[in-house]
């Protein structure tokens, strides 16, 4: 029983950062059908910003990181994605890869490819021990923040002026524009929000790992993307559930696969993802706009 609870706690730990990354990617996809692979680089640049500004006062550094990543997300949207907004999704996807590589290699140039150690909020990495089950404090914080951000996002989308416009744009972009929704502004707001999500991941990720490198965001963007696909492209709740699911699968397979097969764990994770998609091609939670309307 303890072992099972520990696997469950481990799964939640592993899944929480995936869920937050997936939320950032899912948000942009829902609105402009763009799979933003540069989201990983938003996280990476946030981490470097955190390191550069951490010295005097931690809350200030977190604010600086938030501001920097929001600005970066807005700039990326303005410079890279706005000119190709009307292009087909493949063009958008290729553009996002280009932005991702550009930012990554820019940081290889500026900061070098060797990872840098950076101790940040290491007290958070220590675990709470409940009975015999360990949960790092950081993961409780991460899960808490994920839930709060999800709730805030839901409130924003359902109750605020911008949120309603954003949902309208997600349902039918042209129709929304005809009705007076300002496309540029709505998309900019969405990017700013994905910037907030990326910056939060930067802070939590650095606290967990204590190391920075220009390629640190790759895995999170990849898993974040897979999670949104499982959850149902366009569904925010789906993205979060997908993130936790991939985390849970990873931990469960790590615990149950025989040692010789563990190096190929990822293959098993993705095989299960494929099975899920075969059963539910549109993911677990379909986005409303994906449904056929008569």
């Amino acid at each position: 029983m303890t072992a099972f609870l520990q696997v469950l706690a481990d799964a939640a730990s592993q899944g929480s950062l995936y869920a937050l990354s997936a939320l950032g990617i899912g948000l942009i996809f829902g609105i402009m059908r763009l799979v933003n692979f540069a989201h990983g680089e938003f996280i990476m640049i946030g981490a470097y910003m955190l390191m550069l500004s951490a010295a005097p006062y931690v809350p200030l550094a977190i604010l600086a990181t938030l501001a920097a990543v929001i600005l970066l997300a807005l700039l990326t949207e303005r410079i890279a994605f706005r000119p190709v907004r009307r292009a087909n999704p493949t063009t958008l996807l290729v553009t996002s890869f280009a932005v991702s590589f550009f930012l990554q290699y820019l940081f290889v140039l500026i900061e070098g490819a060797r990872p840098k150690g950076f101790d940040f909020l290491s007290s958070l990495a220590e675990p709470f021990v409940i009975g015999e089950v360990r949960v790092p404090k950081l993961n409780i914080v991460t899960i808490g923040i994920t839930l709060v951000l999800l709730a805030a996002l839901a409130f924003f989308l359902k109750r605020t002026h911008f949120g309603i416009q954003m949902r309208a744009a997600a349902l039918n972009f042209r129709m929304a524009r005809l009705l007076g929704v300002k496309a540029n502004r709505i998309i900019a707001v969405a990017f700013a929000m994905s910037g907030v999500l990326a910056a939060v991941v930067s802070v939590l990720y650095v606290a967990a790992r204590g190391e920075l490198s220009p390629v640190m965001g790759l895995q999170l963007a990849l898993v974040g993307f897979v999670s949104t696909v499982i959850g149902g492209m366009g569904s925010l709740l789906g993205a979060v559930v997908g993130g936790f699911l991939v985390g849970a699968l990873t931990v469960a397979l790590q615990a149950s696969l025989p040692l010789e097969l563990r190096p190929f764990r990822e293959a098993f994770v993705f095989a299960i993802v494929i099975v899920v998609l075969l059963a539910r091609p549109r993911g677990l939670f379909r986005g409303r706009e994906a449904r056929e309307r008569v």
Binding site: A3, Q6, V7, A9, D10, S13, Q14, L17, Y18, R134, P136, N139, Y205, A208, R209, Q219, L220, V223, T250, V251, Q254, A255, L259, R262, P263, R265, E266
Partner: peptide, 18 residues
Amino acid sequence: EDTVNGQTDTQVPGQISS
């Protein structure tokens, strides 16, 4: 014994349990 992948394992709670 356990395995880990330094490039893709963002966090290692499972390995810590083993």
